[in-house]
Structure formats: structure tokens, C-alpha cells
Design a protein around this nucleic acid. Structure first.
Lengths: 218, 218
DNA sequence: TTTTTCATACCAACCGATTGGTATGTAATG
DNA sequence: CATTACATACCAATCGGTTGGTATGAAAAA
């Protein structure tokens, strides 16, 4: 007889982890509860013990993904000592590196579920909207701090520019996935850098050929 | 008995039109063939007479959408007399106006199906990839022509910048839909304009109005 | 310590509805 | 007539979700 293991937290974690993997590959609708259970090695009965419905699992997946993101961005976001402009470039560097992971294309579960569910499921839309906002606030805070420390050549609204970067990032992952060309994302990020350099009046080129990414010190 | 109308072309058009409406609202997977048939006022037998399967209809919807797009961009793309840089700004103007339509949020079926299907269905991915490429080539051609006529302040690769604008546009629609804030898209387009002005060395501001001080920190 | 209790983690089997897709028949067209 | 356009009825598979019940472990009771 199989030994029955009781570990509710790990069971939930396994389900959420399986959901993230499958949703990133297939999208939310195309990923069935059965599939998630199989991937997690959990029965369906157990699934619905821990989650009221599929939507609830979606929410948990979004939250877990957000945590992964915060950890990835942490070196740029939560380094109080560095210059804010330097931290901004560091974040762009991190984003660029996310592009090079061999496990698969650079994708975001928030962007995917936004695109798929925003007009259908208000709860999921709100969750995605909130995560996009959180990202934006971090970036806007860095931009605002950078503005204060380095009077920009051209005035701008930090929140507005953060949404600009946010949208570019999401769109780059979308197009990069469809074109199966991660280098495309990196080139877009280089242009984002160039725009920031333009706003702050710092030296930087728009880049014509993909050369070594200039990580000029502020 | 009901009079039976035979108009194969219109039947196909109705099916494609219904598919576009429903997919834009619900995504591809969430839109069933039954639903499409109901919306189009066509029976399922008729559907499968005209389309081999659901994927085939998806392809037709993408193609039809691309035609709609070409018509919308036509004033900017196919005006041989205007200055190419002017045509570029005209296109951005058109994109901005697409944001203001009251029928619903500004969305793109290519971006939606890319995000949902790119890693699942190679045929659909190729179709989306091709449409993104077509858009890009039009924009890249304008950029190249503009470069020739107006020697830019900063050298750049037209194709590369076109992908930058392409990604920004797709990402803006994604975020704009999720945040339910079409003005966000317009502001992003303003920044795109500013970047182009920067590249070409023409006069332009980053944003019209620097707004209230940024706060917001977690 | 040992036994009893009891909420909960977990499971297999099942449910009605819906999915994409077919088989087959009929009516219009050329 | 043959071909094409459309309709009806149906299918197996799968969907999200429910069912009734078993296994478990920690606390309470003995």
C-alpha cells in the first residue's frame, strides 16, 4: 500500500509550480486542471481541496510569479546604497540576462494571463493589473530618485516613463517569443537605455550594431 | 420551410468577422466553434464545410485582421508624396486614434494569438510572426527613407527601431487593456515620438507636462 | 503513556456540460 | 445531372467540478 504523505504546504507549492510551468507554455485556458494535477503528482480531489476553483489557482500562480520576479529584480530594486540611475541600468541588465536563459523563451505569466483573461475574468485582471502596478511603482521610484540626484536634460514624469518601460518589456517578450528571437528583446532594451540616457542627458548611443552593452557608470 | 440562402463568400466573411469579435474579447481557446457559429448565424456543418478546423479559421481571422490593419495604416504607409518622417508621425497619430474608439479597448488579434498560441501551434505562430514582420517592414522602410532624406543626429538600424516600435505598440495594447486605461497607450506613443525626434535630432519634448511629484513606494 | 477524538489532507470514481469534429441528408446552383 | 452550400444529429473526448469516503496526525482524554 502506498504511503500517504501529508504535507499540505508542499502540495500547494507543487500545484502552483506545475501551474506556472504549464501556463507559461500553453496559456491559462489550454491548461487543464487534470494536466496540472498530473504534472504535480496530485489527484484532482486534492486539488479542489486546496483551491476553490481553477481561477483561485491562477491567482496563486500570479502571486508566486510576482515573488519570483521580486527576487530576480532584488539586486536592482533593494540596493539602497547604489546610485538610483545605476540601479536602473542594473535592472535593465537583469532583464537582458533573463533573455539568455536556455530553459525556454523569455516570457511572463502576468503578461500572458493579462492578454488572455483581462476582458473575461475581472478577478484575474485585477491581479495582473496590480502586479503590473507594483513593478511600475518600483521603477517609477527609481526614476524619481534618479531625477533628484541627476537633474535630467529633459523633464519627464517618472510614472509615465515607468509605464513606457513596462509596456516595452511586455511587448518585447511577446514579440520575442513569437519571432523566436531573444536577441530582439535585448536590442529593444538597448534602445530603452538610449532613451533614458537621452532623458538624463548622459552619454550613450542608440546602438546600431549589437556591440558589448555599454554599462557606463551613470 | 425557411428559405435557404446560398452565399458562400458572405458566409465565410460572417464567420471570420464573428471570430474576430469573439477572439478579441475572449481569446482563441475560450472561443468555441459553437459560439462563433451562433454569432455568425451559421450552423456548424456549414462552418466545417468552409474551414477544415478551428485552426484554419484562426488563420483566416489573422489574415482578415491584417487587411483591416493595412487599411487603417494606409494613409501613412501608401502616401508616396509625403515626407517619410511625416508619414511616420502620421502613423503614430493613427495608432493614437485607434485608442479612442468607443467600441472597446484597443487590442490586436495578432498580439493576442501570439501570446496565447505561439508555443503551442506552429502554424498560428508562423502566421502571427509573418504579420508582425509585415508591419515591421513597412515601418522599417519608412525609417530608412526618412534616414536618407533627413540625416539623423544618431545613427540607427531602421529594422531594429521598427521592432522597438512594434514591441512597444503590442505591449502598450496589452498593458492598456489590463489597466483599462487607453490614455496610457497614448502617452507611450508620445514617448516613442520623442525617441524618434531624438534619433533624428528634430525638436521634441519627452512629455507634454511634467506632472506632480512622484511618490509611491511600497 | 496509551487511547480516543476529530479536523483535515488526500483519493478514485464519477457528473453534466461542452469541446472540436463527423456522418449523413437535403436543397440550391450551374 | 453533378457539385456545392448548408442543416441536423450525433460522437468520443475532455472540461471544471463534486461525490463519498479513507488516511493521517496532533490534541484531548483516559
Amino acid at each position: 500500500m502506498k504511503k500517504r504523505v501529508r504535507d499540505p504546504e508542499q502540495t500547494q507549492r507543487k500545484l502552483v509550480a506545475a501551474a506556472i510551468v504549464l501556463i507559461l507554455r500553453q496559456g491559462f485556458h489550454a491548461t487543464s486542471v487534470d494536466q496540472i494535477c498530473a504534472e504535480a503528482g496530485v489527484t484532482k480531489g486534492s486539488f479542489f481541496h486546496h483551491f476553490a476553483n481553477k481561477e483561485a489557482l491562477g491567482l496563486a500562480a500570479i502571486a508566486a510569479w510576482a515573488k519570483i520576479g521580486r527576487d530576480a529584480y532584488a539586486p536592482a530594486w533593494h540596493d539602497a546604497v547604489s546610485d538610483p540611475l545605476k540601479r536602473l541600468h542594473r535592472m535593465l541588465e537583469i532583464m537582458s540576462q533573463l533573455t539568455e536563459r536556455p530553459e525556454g523563451p523569455c516570457v511572463c505569466i502576468v503578461g500572458m494571463m493579462s492578454q488572455e483573461m483581462a476582458l473575461q475574468d475581472e478577478t484575474l485582471r485585477d491581479a495582473c493589473s496590480g502586479e503590473l502596478l507594483d513593478w511600475n511603482q518600483e521603477v517609477a521610484a527609481m526614476l524619481a530618485a534618479a531625477k533628484e540626484k541627476h537633474p535630467p536634460a529633459i523633464d519627464f514624469d517618472p510614472v509615465e516613463v515607468a509605464w513606457f518601460l513596462n509596456s516595452l518589456w511586455q511587448g518585447s517578450m511577446l514579440v520575442g517569443k513569437t519571432r523566436a528571437e531573444p536577441a530582439l528583446i535585448r536590442r529593444n532594451l538597448t534602445h530603452a537605455r538610449a532613451y533614458l540616457d537621452h532623458l538624463f542627458g548622459t552619454q550613450g548611443r542608440a546602438s546600431r550594431k549589437p556591440k558589448s552593452p555599454s554599462r557606463s557608470k551613470s
